[in-house]
């Protein structure tokens, strides 16, 4: 199985640890992952802000880079939803020339969010992780209503040794990030985040986890501004965590 990592421009530039965690995790599960270097951005920011032509060009680039892989793993709900939901819609609307539209049809079904790849393709929920902390999980809108990840992230987290998963009130409500929305409507965005942060703090959790670093950048930026003492972590980083010595033992027993 040829597996590629689509790191996403935000993770590539600002959150490389998430990418490293995906690589570590997949290797531990026996999956060799490629990083096609020509990848840049899925085009979500451009398309969703109203710069359609640029978004379409970047979509074209994405399918050219990733066509032919058996699986393209994306550690970001909103970028994954951009590819899976919006690319076919753009294709239906005649945005691409014929050959590109074909590439879209070929590529999109092989694009998986990390948790889908783990649960549906590899068939694992216990990834051998160890993370002795109290964690709450924010499902993020595009993971929830776009990709429909459902309970996959929760099932993965429940199998992590030492991890105490606590429910988050109002979990399904948007945190107020919304890409350029956070800058174009800063007051509403901040008001939404205020409520999200209150719910997070009410859980008493030490770590807020999500499958999208963009939302976490927004909530996390608010948490640190408030000196709240709760940190944010991408799901991949929790799943990649092991007890000291764990990784080597697994390597030897293989």
């Amino acid at each position: 199985m040829r597996v590629a990592l689509f790191i996403t421009c935000v993770n590539d530039t600002l959150f490389p640890d998430t990418g490293k965690a995906v690589v570590t995790l997949l290797r531990r599960l026996g999956v060799d992952v490629d990083f096609p270097e020509a990848q840049t951005c899925c085009g979500q920011m451009h398309l969703n802000t109203g710069y359609r032509a640029e978004g379409v060009r970047l979509a074209d680039r994405f399918v050219t880079v990733f066509r032919g892989y058996d699986a393209v793993v994306v550690p970001s709900g909103s970028c994954g939803a951009m590819v899976r939901e919006q690319y076919p819609r753009l294709a239906d609307g005649g945005a691409f020339p014929g050959a590109v539209a074909e590439a879209v049809a070929d590529t999109v079904p092989h694009v998986y969010d990390l948790s889908e790849f783990l649960v549906d393709v590899l068939g694992v929920t216990d990834v051998g992780a160890y993370f002795p902390h109290r964690v709450t999980y924010h499902p993020t809108c595009h993971s929830l209503r776009g990709l429909r990840l459902g309970d996959r992230p929760r099932r993965l987290l429940e199998q992590v040794r030492g991890l105490e998963l606590v429910p988050l009130a109002g979990a399904e409500e948007c945190c107020g990030f919304g890409g350029t929305f956070a800058v174009k409507n800063p007051d509403i965005s901040a008001a939404m985040c205020g409520d999200k942060v209150r719910n997070v703090l009410d859980t008493g959790a030490e770590v807020l986890c999500a499958a999208d670093n963009s939302c976490l950048m927004h909530i996390g930026g608010t948490l640190t501004r408030q000196k709240a003492g709760v940190r944010v972590m991408h799901l991949a980083e929790i799943l990649a965590s092991t007890e000291p010595g764990d990784a080597r033992e697994r390597e030897e027993s293989r």
């Binding site: 993770n11 530039t13 956070a182 800063p186 985040c193 930026g221």
Partner: peptide, 25 residues
């Protein structure tokens, strides 16, 4: 400018020394 809408209520994330692609290479 307009980007101040972000930093009015949120901290910026720390920019890492090395991007993922540079780490990979």
């Amino acid at each position: 400018g307009p980007l101040g809408g972000w930093t009015d209520t949120r901290d910026l994330p720390a920019i890492p020394k090395e991007s993922f692609r540079d780490w990979w290479n």
